[in-house]
Design a protein around this nucleic acid. Sequence first.
DNA 1: AAGTGGTCTAGACCACCCC
DNA 2: GGGTGGTCTAGACCACTTC
Lengths: 245, 245
Amino acid sequence: MAGRSTQLNKIKGVIREQIVGGVLLPQQKLSSERELSDRFSTTRITIKDALTSLETEGLIYREERKGWFVSPPRIHYNPLSRSHFHQMIREQQRIAETKVVNVETVLATSDHAKVLERSDFPTVHLIRRLRYIDGRAVLFVENCLISELFPGILQENLTTSLTGLYKEKYGYTTSRSRFDVIPTAAPEHVAKSLGIAAGQQVLKICRVNYNQDEVIIDCEFEYWRPDSVVITIDSCEDCEKTSAY
Amino acid sequence: MAGRSTQLNKIKGVIREQIVGGVLLPQQKLSSERELSDRFSTTRITIKDALTSLETEGLIYREERKGWFVSPPRIHYNPLSRSHFHQMIREQQRIAETKVVNVETVLATSDHAKVLERSDFPTVHLIRRLRYIDGRAVLFVENCLISELFPGILQENLTTSLTGLYKEKYGYTTSRSRFDVIPTAAPEHVAKSLGIAAGQQVLKICRVNYNQDEVIIDCEFEYWRPDSVVITIDSCEDCEKTSAY
DNA sequence: AAGTGGTCTAGACCACCCC
DNA sequence: GGGTGGTCTAGACCACTTC
């Protein structure tokens, strides 16, 4: 099932076998495009087409202007589970890290207000963070918190779980959340943070969180490198978890 | 926020405005790549890069060797909801259609057996169907049913809801389902059915369904055109729905 | 300074679709 | 048969990273 025997498919096949066969290891850099085009006696354009196609499969990824690398196994992620990012990654025997990109307090844009279902354009804290797995930046998150509900939160340590902070400092627990998953292109600031070229594919997840009183307290925009994750949902598990809160 | 002012970004900007501004309507064909490369005084490669980038955004899609078309609005899809495909599409004021691609009865492959959690490689019915929205093929589905649980099902009308058949003919209701969402490349037979080029991006959803006795009765592999859908999940709603069954 | 990917030119042939 | 996108050649310059 290798498809028509084009140059493209041959190149893809060779590289795919090297990855699946373990000749190339996760996060290892592939040869440069020029080197590959020599080795396969073809042009950079054809090589780039082959690499882009393997990227779509989720086998490799690129760091802008650095090169192409082998994708590590995907992380299983359940957006309904209130498990913290660091805990979730640790449970999958991987290493998590979080860095704050920037923080600001502004009036909600119309986009934010819409998601938060607030027609009065409240003041919000925007917290933008980058999350790493095994040293690789895979997730850009923007949290948008209604500021009056979270006095003083910007003075806290924001590299850990916000959900944890919500609970400990403010007594909010998430009774319910609603989210959308959309395959789309990375906006420019996201692409820059993740080290991908603008306009490349990401998996966008928009989430709205409700507290125990069914009040929307924040929303979140996640942008995942598409090869890094598989969204996993179990209706049963989630209902148990939700009702346990 | 138009990015660096490259030729690429200019072309993308012009076409994007025509789409957002309603000059180009959903499902309308764009000019051919050659025509566009004339109009923008550039080469087909650059035009193709621009179009591919807009495709990643979800603004346009392609039909293999036919051309590029404007994407209609995305359908909201909740894989946990047991709502039937046709009903779901109708509720969103769109027109649904289903065609059977082929049907076969075979021994489960190791992939299927694994998902079905059956180490004995049972005989399964594979039902492959193509689903259309407003006349456009957007979803390829392969259902894999454990054949001993569904005697005679292949004689039924398979262009409607399988879930409906499960209930009416066999008394099975789905108490629980578990699914994975994965951005990946279209396998060859899927690409061919959907009319996309092999190796292009799709959103793959693998689902396992349990009946009221917590027995796995079938699994399903869905391949969506990535611009056609947004996965929407509400923890609250789902719990209500699940418990209502 | 050397090397990388990102962008771009100016062509070509082929497989397939539609008329 | 004419037009479409899919694939491919053989180069080029630029922005950025790495050393």
